[in-house]
C-alpha cells in the first residue's frame, strides 16, 4: 500500500469529506511525526507502536575504494517498535 492508496482508502471511509481533506490529513499526520522525531520527541501510538531515536556511536570506518581510515561521527537514527496489537495481528494465527 502506498501513500496515495492510503489516502484513497481514508477518503472512501469518509464520504462526507472531500478527497483533498484525506490527502491533507495524511500529510499533516506524517509531517507531525517527522517533526517530532527531528525534535528528538518520541511518538507513542497505542496498539500500533512507538517511534524513537537510537544513538549510533562514532566509529572509525574505511573508505571502501581506497581502504583509507575515516572517522564517522555518532548519529541518531529513527527506530520503530511494533505495539502488541500490531504484533499479534501480523503474526500467524496460533
Amino acid at each position: 500500500m502506498t501513500k496515495s492508496e492510503l489516502i484513497a482508502r481514508l477518503a472512501a471511509r469518509h464520504p462526507h469529506l472531500v478527497a483533498a481533506d484525506a490527502e491533507l490529513a495524511v500529510k499533516t499526520i506524517l509531517d507531525a511525526m517527522t517533526q517530532s522525531l527531528v525534535e528528538g520527541k518520541r511518538i507513542e501510538i497505542r496498539g500500533f507502536g512507538s517511534f524513537s531515536l537510537n544513538f549510533r556511536p562514532p566509529r572509525v570506518g574505511r573508505n571502501p575504494k581506497t581502504g583509507e581510515k575515516v572517522h564517522v561521527d555518532g548519529k541518531y537514527v529513527p527506530h520503530f517498535k511494533a505495539g502488541k496489537e500490531l504484533r499479534d495481528r501480523v503474526d500467524y494465527g496460533e
Binding site: M1, T2, K3, L6, F48, E85, L86, V90
Partner: peptide, 22 residues
C-alpha cells in the same frame, strides 16, 4: 482510521510505503 488502515494492510501481508517517511 489512519493507523487502522496501515495495520490492516500489514495484517493482510501487504507492505506499506509512505514516501518521504518510511
Amino acid at each position: 482510521v489512519f493507523f487502522e488502515e496501515v495495520r490492516t494492510a500489514l495484517e493482510q501481508g501487504d507492505s506499506v510505503k509512505l514516501s518521504g517517511f518510511g
